[in-house]
Design a protein around this nucleic acid. Structure first.
Lengths: 234, 234
DNA sequence: GAATTTAGTGTATGTTTTACACTTTTGTAT
DNA sequence: ATACAAAAGTGTAAAACATACACTAAATTC
């Protein structure tokens, strides 16, 4: 026996939901689709899964092709299998979401694709079921970040507490008290204070912090409860 | 254009991780695989995704075929795509996990399959990457149940607080204080006390409770923190 | 009616979360 | 040089929540 007979084989793709943060708001990287159908319309970056390639490999490959980045935070979101999701031919898609430092991306941008960052609140129309994927990814990010310290992945290596706070505020659409916020964040002991300050955005300047990568890896499963009323989340 | 040319099409399957609770311990429903390869070995219940059928449909169909049950708690766990996971031919699988009332199953059992409940702690060897799927499902169940009131799905319509507590204790391998437990559970106001008692397991008898299905649907996203130290979970 | 078994309940203590306001720093404008 | 503006940084008191802990109540069995 070498094959399962009488079964239908289906195209399998991956799609990447790529989040970035520019210091102000959460953004999503979309590309102009370069094949028919829907050629020229905005889309998640994706690609077919190749023979001998796992989903993770495929998603990593796709992400690297677009951003030049490797070793970034990536997590499987869900598989999408509606028979009608691609009008040309049935294609199932395994969606991954990534958190990247938007500045690193800018340096490494490949111009092979028409790619553009869109504020998460002003997304253009996207093809197929991609808006569905994006919606789910946003939800999962909010959910997960309420308990796990993953938002660091969106920031540069050195960042300030006000920057981190505004990231949380952006993602949860909530104003947080800076005293309570810094106490909570620092109580994780995941952050290491640096000697230098970021002086672009304020006269006084705010101290930089770095993530303690070792502790971060160990403590990833520490539930943090950063958000005052996680009840309100899905 | 009617097809994506030059792309490889792949077999797509679903597998169901079916949890049940017999009042003592958490169990998993496995079947004896009835096709080659690995015919006769223990396996999750699964099946190929058919043309025109979504993943949810396929998983629901597979679950119904085995258990006779519909409208049960079911959630996508993850897609598994290792190119080597099926030795015969590349097959990707979308795994779903379900929580069912084990008693309902017993009544409706289909004997078309050799199926058997195994205590989660004494599982036999299973085929392919199924132990991996099971491990992930166990983790997700523990994770999710720490915040969401889903374990009710494993119980019959009427249940007692001691039964519910022993379910939590089983799943988290922890002894819980019954005073604290009942306070926490009842504070959700999700349970409605019944007038009758369960008198099998004790002389005094314990009052039955029913889930308030309406509130349950609304409050599903209330994070409950049933478990004293969720830090310890993945 | 005594003994056994499990159900059911309350309180005091410690911990965590929340709400809240002033001082410090330093660049810019006069 | 001095005043002003703008954001950083810090502490405390009250409330809410989590925990630890032990006795009484109910009903069956002998």
């Amino acid at each position: 026996m070498t094959r399962y007979s009488r079964q239908t084989r289906i195209l399998v793709a991956v799609d990447c939901i790529i989040f970035g943060f520019d210091g102000q708001e959460l953004k999503l990287l979309l590309v102009k689709r370069h094949i028919e159908p829907e050629k020229g319309n905005w889309s998640l970056m994706g690609g077919f899964v190749e023979p001998g390639e796992s989903f993770e490999c495929a998603a990593t490959r796709v992400l690297k092709k677009l951003t030049g980045l490797e070793n970034v935070y990536m997590e499987q979101l869900s598989a999408f299998g509606d028979p009608e999701r691609d009008p040309i031919e049935r294609t199932v898609s395994v969606a991954y979401f990534s958190l990247i430092d938007i500045n690193k991306y800018i340096q490494q941008i490949s111009h092979e694709y028409d790619a553009e960052w869109f504020p998460i609140k002003k997304l253009p129309e996207v093809i197929f079921d991609h808006s569905n994927m994006i919606e789910m990814a946003k939800e999962k990010l909010r959910y997960k970040a309420a308990f796990h310290p993953i938002l660091f992945e969106l920031l540069p290596e050195k960042f300030t507490l006000p920057q981190l706070q505004s990231l949380y505020e952006g993602i949860y659409d909530a104003a947080l008290d800076k005293r309570n916020f810094s106490r909570k964040i620092l109580s994780t002991t995941l952050l290491v204070k640096q000697k230098d300050k970021e002086k672009e955005t304020s006269k006084r300047g705010a101290f930089y912090y770095k993530l303690d990568r070792k502790k971060y890896a160990n403590k990833f499963n520490a539930f943090l409860n950063f958000i005052p009323n996680p009840q309100k989340l899905k």
